[in-house]
Write a protein that binds this DNA or RNA. Structure first.
Lengths: 166, 166
DNA sequence: TTGCGTGCAAATCTTTTGCAGAATG
DNA sequence: CATTCTGCAAAAGATTTGCACGCAA
């Protein structure tokens, strides 16, 4: 998974933890240890991750050993809360921050599987224009540009993953 | 899955079947009944489909009963041949024609799950500009705009599918 | 105290794979 | 005739679910 960050984070008034607590309470859901450990862990640093990576990291520490089921359930809640975005890459669900982080899209390298972020206002303008033509009410979008990143071009085309699924 | 077509098909010199045969032969692969029945069926009409829909359709006819495994294997070959494109929507792999059909992107309605196609040259220009800035060599892209389509807006927001996964 | 949440294991769902027999070149 | 393909069933990988018990409110 990518370790490249292309963008600066943006200012938010509540910490991710506070924001999640607010969300849970507004829905009559409980503020549990597991949920708190998960938000903390997830927003500790900005990177793309999947459920397995999260489980692997958390289970290193005896204190934060959380079951698979709970992790999947909590990830869904964070998506509902609008704090995470999910996309699927090669059949696997990948998450990224959607709280305290600006709208952006990705360049996906087929060779090393890294994700490079970029932001484009023009894209949003274009998107809205297309939607308007179709009487479509936009709630979001996802653009993934696939190809080979600069470092991999130098390394000379290494075999890419078999299925170029996005 | 969507039944809406937004674009006109484009002229191609070989029929999908001929094109696939050419591909198979160029790779020393065999032209089997199953493969031929599949290309025929798939290119019979332009729509988005997944492996299950294909299996369901084909097994209605005793003559074209093809095993799941062969269907998956052939879909991969058609993708390799550049005749189909795959994307994943809500965790399921969905295919569409990439032969005899122009480059395009989609509006995806969260309410009725339909896919509406649109083509935009500007988008390609924008894509190439972004990639150039990053020294990225583009091989393709996928843009999915999510929201609510015009018909669904009228029907008044019906509950959307739980996971807005793209 | 009253449920909601968690962990566990089993169940699902989708796609992949090993292998023996069938079909193609 | 030599292989490649296919079908079957089992395997694999990811995510979901039922249920009994524990914990938050």
């Amino acid at each position: 998974m990518s370790k490249e960050y292309a963008l600066e984070s943006i200012e938010v008034s509540l910490s991710p933890r506070e924001r999640f607590v607010e969300y849970l309470q507004s829905r009559g859901k409980r503020v549990t240890q597991q949920r708190m450990q998960l938000v903390d862990r997830i927003f500790e640093r900005h990177e793309h991750f999947d459920a397995d990576e999260l489980i692997a990291h958390l289970s290193q520490n005896k204190e934060t050993r959380i079951s698979r089921a709970t992790i999947y359930r909590t990830l869904d809640e964070l998506v509902d809360a609008g704090m995470l975005r999910a996309m699927s890459l090669s059949g696997r669900r990948v998450y990224e921050h959607d709280y305290g982080y600006p709208q952006h899209d990705h360049l996906h390298c087929k060779s090393c599987d890294s994700l490079i972020e970029f932001a484009s206002d023009e894209l949003v303008t274009l998107r809205d224009a297309v939607a308007r033509e179709h009487g479509f009410r936009v709630t979001g979008h996802r653009l993934i540009i696939t190809g080979i990143c600069a470092p991999c071009q130098k390394k000379q085309s290494r075999p890419a993953s078999p299925l170029d699924l996005v």
